[in-house]
């Protein structure tokens, strides 16, 4: 257990749990040749290609002959095996800074855990953040040894800006095909449909994880209020009564149902978690939703 992992809540017990888990895809994906056997039908292990070595790659797959000739580390790739790129799309808009702990912290912890599982399974892990723009704070990593870098990068995330799923759509082509896990509160409009379409068209399997703060599920509000949106600054005036809170709860359910519909149209799923859910329970929920096995 490292300092960054501890700050994310990934202690020794959680790591022991993560070591027994693996990411699963709903369907076969196209990916780079790697150690994970592709679900596609294929032949025996056959050399397929070379690619440049990246930190975290298994050094056993380095083509030493090529290194001797070219003085560059080149990896040998074989057909019939795939390494999946798990891209963790994390919403870092201002709204993710709410909650105690913040939704962004919960997203980082969950992403750290899922990233660990991916790295431990010899998958590539990349982290993309989006609000108004898309950033790649963690380029594709591979190998368990890079998990510390992943966690440090996640810990360094800060919430700012406004959610723009269109930015996700614009950046999708740069994403490697694989498994895309989008972690957001999904409390913005327009919704993620366009981004998900772009990801799907890029050949990725999509899973949505919605993180909501407890106050967003059961607002502790009352009286005459002017509500200001943390991202847009827009205000609405309401008189919060029990009836209005009931209406809010119904609206939230409807919103989640709509979001789930969007996910399913893109052959994905929606997992909703409270931001104050302990990480072990959150991982259990991921197993229930077959994101982990």
């Amino acid at each position: 257990m490292t300092g960054a992992g501890a700050e994310l809540g990934i202690d020794g017990g959680v790591i022991a749990l993560l070591d027994r888990l693996a990411l699963s895809s709903r369907r076969p994906v196209l990916g780079s040749p790697g150690v994970r056997r592709a679900r596609r039908t294929g032949g025996a292990v056959e050399f397929a290609d070379h690619r440049a070595y990246t930190p975290g790659d298994d050094i056993r797959r380095v083509d030493w002959n090529a290194y001797a000739r070219l003085d560059r580390l080149i990896l040998r790739l074989y057909a019939g095996e795939e390494d999946t790129t798990v891209t963790l799309w994390i919403d870092v808009s201002s709204s993710m800074g709410f909650g105690r702990p913040s939704k962004l912290h919960a997203a980082a912890a969950l992403a750290g855990a899922l990233g660990y599982v991916a790295l431990a399974g010899y998958d590539r892990v990349a982290v993309a953040t989006f609000s108004g723009d898309v950033a790649w704070p963690v380029p594709p990593l591979r190998g368990r040894a890079r998990v510390e870098a992943l966690w440090r990068a996640l810990l360094a995330l800060r919430a700012s800006g406004s959610t723009d799923f269109a930015a996700l759509a614009r950046a999708a082509p740069r994403s490697r095909p694989g498994l895309c896990i989008v972690i957001s509160d999904f409390l913005s409009e327009p919704g993620p449909a366009r981004g998900l379409t772009a990801l799907r068209q890029g050949g990725s399997d999509v899973t949505l994880i919605q993180l909501l703060a407890p106050d967003e599920i059961s607002p502790a509000l009352s009286g005459d209020l002017r509500l200001r949106d943390a991202e847009s600054g827009a205000t609405v005036e309401v008189t919060v009564t029990p009836a209005l809170l009931a209406e809010y709860a119904a609206a939230l359910s409807a919103h989640q149902a709509a979001l789930r519909g969007v996910a399913r149209r893109h052959r994905g799923d929606l997992l909703t978690l409270r931001s104050d859910t302990p990480l072990r329970e959150a991982l259990g929920a991921c197993r229930s939703h077959t994101l982990l096995r």
């Binding site: 201002s94 709204s95 913005s188 005459d224 509500l227 309401v238 809010y248």
Partner: peptide, 24 residues
Amino acid sequence: LRVRRRETTLSSTLLWRARVVDRQ
């Protein structure tokens, strides 16, 4: 007269907008 209201900042007002009628 409009009510003097206490201002509260939320992560998002998306789900509140539909609850507001003609008070803008």
